[in-house]
Amino acid sequence: MTDRLYVYPISTVSGPQAVEGDAVRLAGGMVYAREFAVIVRREGQTVSREVTNASGIADAFAKLPADLGPEAEAQWSALRMAHPAMELGDRTIRLDQPQVMGILNVTPDSFSDGGKFMDDPEEMQAHAAAMHEAGAAIIDIGGESTRPGAKAIWEGEEIERVRPAVAHCAGMGAVVSIDTRRPAVMEASIEAGARIINDVSALRYDPRSLEFAASSGAPVILMHAPGSGEDLHAAPDYTAVAFDVFDFLKEARDRALAGGISQDRMILDPGIGFGKTLADNLSVLNHLPMYHALGCPLLLGASRKRMIGALSNEAPAHQRAGGSLALAQLGMDAGVQLLRVHDVFETVQARNVWRGLRDAALTDFGGLPD
């Protein structure tokens, strides 16, 4: 029997001064965590759970089985880790505040835009420019739909779809990530100017992907999806989905480390909407702060997802901006570093207002005596 440990931040405060310093800066961002649940699970069941504050964490760790001590310290260190900025050629993306990644699909069957950016290059270019000017730190370009039921395409076709978009966006000065699970597409896109690899299969789909990603030197986004092969949504068998996603991402991180990708080049994505029911998605979203314990920046891709329609009278994709902004704020409140969204202008505006509130909170002592 193998015990698994999870150090889960369960409450936050406006700033450390609000609780006389008894809080930690979560992942080097603008969120401060005060209380933590130290959870031990065995064979899919929780066998112990202790809630403590930052000042009591050492005592909580002292009660753990000796073999869990190193993992406890590693997760505690990761929760307090300040992630360095991503240096991407002549562009720097800081990770001490949320950054917005704009979605550009050049597919005929995207659930959000119906293929219009593939069929009309001028409209694609105008949309990319609008996202860039609105404040997108990254433009994420994908040439294959990964919605449930979508069919895989030939890699040569995928390259023909994405390469012009990558070259155009890189040429206008944007940082580009390539959303693909195929090493040939990764390579062609990096040659065209992409700086980041975003693999929804966490480098599992093609055994050559890990080797290429390691040799490329590019940051890599590793996403949770329960399926393998062509169907990433297939046959989820969760015991407790939030913890199962944590375990998957930990294994994906360790596999990438063993394959030559340094941890400071990894970003982890819990994969909202991939092989998850509405209840599963809600559980993962409510546990987002826990994933900081894996020691990598986090990406949240919940924009216009089906779950928003399920919670709002089946609103179609183009009418899910309000729900998308609600989930983006949830991500910001959880300390997520990257928000992958369709509605860039609105999300950047929400981020800027959120940041103003956070900045003000650090100097607002709430009437405490001097």
Rank of each mutant, 00 (worst) to 15 (best):
I267D: 02
M223W: 12
D199S: 06
V245E: 11
T180S: 12
F248E: 10
S216F: 01
P183K: 10
Y205L: 13
H233Y: 09
R208S: 09
A235C: 14
D247N: 13
D206Q: 08
V200A: 06
G193Y: 04
L210V: 06
E230S: 14
R181W: 14
A225G: 14
Y238V: 01
G193M: 12
D254G: 11
P236V: 03
L210T: 02
D269W: 08
R208Y: 11
A194R: 02
D244A: 04
E191G: 10
S209H: 07
A188W: 05
D231T: 08
V185K: 05
P219N: 04
V185T: 06
P207S: 06
V241G: 02
M186W: 09
A213W: 02
A218P: 01
A192Y: 00
I190M: 15
Y205V: 00
V241E: 07
T239V: 14
G275N: 03
V185M: 04
P219M: 11
N198C: 05
S209P: 00
A194I: 00
G271A: 08
G273T: 04
I196L: 13
P207L: 04
G271C: 10
M186R: 07
N198K: 07
I190R: 14
D231L: 01
A218W: 00
E211H: 13
M266P: 05
F243T: 10
A213V: 05
T239N: 12
V200T: 09
A184G: 13
P207D: 03
F274T: 12
L210C: 07
R208Q: 13
G273L: 13
R208K: 14
T180Y: 13
S216A: 11
K250E: 15
I272K: 02
A188P: 04
L203Q: 03
R208M: 13
T180K: 11
L249P: 01
R181T: 14
A213G: 05
Q263T: 15
M266Y: 02
G273V: 06
M223N: 01
D269L: 06
A225S: 15
V200Q: 02
L257R: 15
I267H: 04
L232C: 10
A184N: 14
A256H: 09
Q263Y: 05
D244R: 04
M223Y: 09
T239P: 00
L268G: 07
A213Y: 02
A184C: 12
D206P: 00
M186N: 07
R265I: 08
I197R: 12
E230I: 13
E211S: 13
L257T: 14
A218Q: 08
I272D: 01
I272L: 11
D264Y: 11
A213M: 05
I190P: 00
S189V: 00
P270T: 00
E191N: 12
S262K: 14
A194E: 11
L268R: 11
